[in-house]
């Protein structure tokens, strides 16, 4: 406890509070609320029942009205705390409501019906996590299909990216040939050709190759990332050429040099690229939206956007699916954040 107090009251060089200290802490605490608050609110909301989601003002924790099974009634009845005419309060179950009058019975003695004005009753509530929100989409929305499609696209695209980009990086860092600089410049120039500029002709090419409504049509155009080639090449340049020469002396083939010597030594850079690639491909939206028009091929991102754009949004399902979609990225964030931040700071590329 004293540690926390010392931490909170730490000052610049032991001097008194400077106005910049106040600004700093206000900014940081505000940032904490603004950055995490919305996501936490979403996760909390995803455990609420549809009735609780429609409520205003909303409750912070998920509550539902307690129900009770009463003899003589088929369905469980809602429990209310009602103020009776004589001023006493009692916990009663509501049988039906007519206008502003609620007909209630005592759960222990269901024979007698008591009439109570609806303004004089408040629901008895208990905390309850609506886990249906998570379990139902698996049968309801082809959710498993979307999940599988997303996983397939992410894993396949990342593996191909690693192989294809590392091969190119190897050629561009360990061989002297005419047009090497030209090839490197060409690759970097593709950074300047974003999807939004070429999506019309790209769509026609992908269709001509028969990849429209095909997950490979989502995967293939994304795998030759200029960022990946750049990161890997910069890393391979630091590997001494003598290693390659020595291996050639020992009659190793060029292919063996690539995958037995260079690739293992490039492992840290490959790991960074793999993390980036997983996040990119998992999050891709516009291109899958264009290429995939059949429901059973949607990735999670496309499925979510389509269902959330419907006229009657089923928010309790959407929220739960959003949380599931966040999970891999949050895991990456928690465990691999260090790699990503150093990767970005080092190359300035995302």
């Amino acid at each position: 406890m004293s540690g926390i107090v010392r931490f909170l009251t730490r000052r610049r060089g032991g001097k008194g509070w400077h106005w910049t200290d106040i600004v700093t802490w206000a900014w940081l605490i505000g940032g904490l609320l603004v950055m995490f608050g919305p996501a936490v609110w979403l996760v909390g909301s995803s455990f609420k029942s549809p009735a609780a989601l429609a409520e205003f003002p909303p409750t912070i924790l998920p509550y539902v009205t307690q129900k009770v099974t009463v003899e003589g009634y088929d369905k469980p009845l809602d429990l209310y705390e009602a103020t009776l005419e004589d001023g006493s309060t009692a916990v009663l179950a509501e049988v039906r409501r007519i206008g502003v009058v609620s007909q209630m019975v005592d759960p222990k003695d269901p024979g007698e019906i008591v009439k109570v004005n609806i303004a004089k009753r408040t629901p008895v509530r208990e905390m309850s996590f609506a886990t249906d929100n998570y379990t139902e989409p698996f049968t309801h929305f082809d959710f498993v299909r979307y999940l599988w499609n997303s996983v397939f696209v992410t894993v396949t695209a990342t593996l191909i990216t690693l192989v294809v980009n590392s091969m190119a990086a190897f050629a561009l860092s360990k061989y002297e040939f005419r047009g090497r600089t030209m090839a490197m410049l060409l690759i970097l120039a593709t950074l300047m050709v974003p999807l939004s500029v070429i999506m019309v002709p790209l769509y026609s090419i992908v269709s001509a190759l028969g990849l429209f409504n095909n997950l490979w049509g989502v995967i293939l155009p994304t795998v030759a990332t200029p960022t990946g080639v750049f990161i890997l090449r910069q890393y391979m340049l630091t590997i001494p050429d003598e290693l390659v020469d020595a291996a050639r002396m020992d009659k190793a083939s060029e292919w063996q040099i690539y995958w037995r010597i260079i690739l293992p030594l490039t492992a840290p850079a490959l790991a960074v690229l793999a993390i980036f690639s997983v996040v990119w491909r998992w999050n891709d939206f516009l291109w899958p939206l264009i290429v995939l028009s059949r429901k059973e091929l949607y990735t999670l991102q496309v499925g979510l956007s389509i269902y959330s754009g419907e006229l009657n949004v089923q928010w309790h399902f959407i929220l739960a699916m959003t949380v599931v979609t966040m999970i891999p990225v949050v895991l990456v964030f928690i465990f691999l954040q260090r790699f990503i931040t150093t990767g970005i700071a080092g190359t300035g590329l995302k």
Partner: peptide, 11 residues
């Protein structure tokens, strides 16, 4: 804290 939303998908 400030980096966290960067990884979230736009959707």
């Amino acid at each position: 804290v400030f980096f966290f939303p960067v990884l979230l998908s736009p959707v």
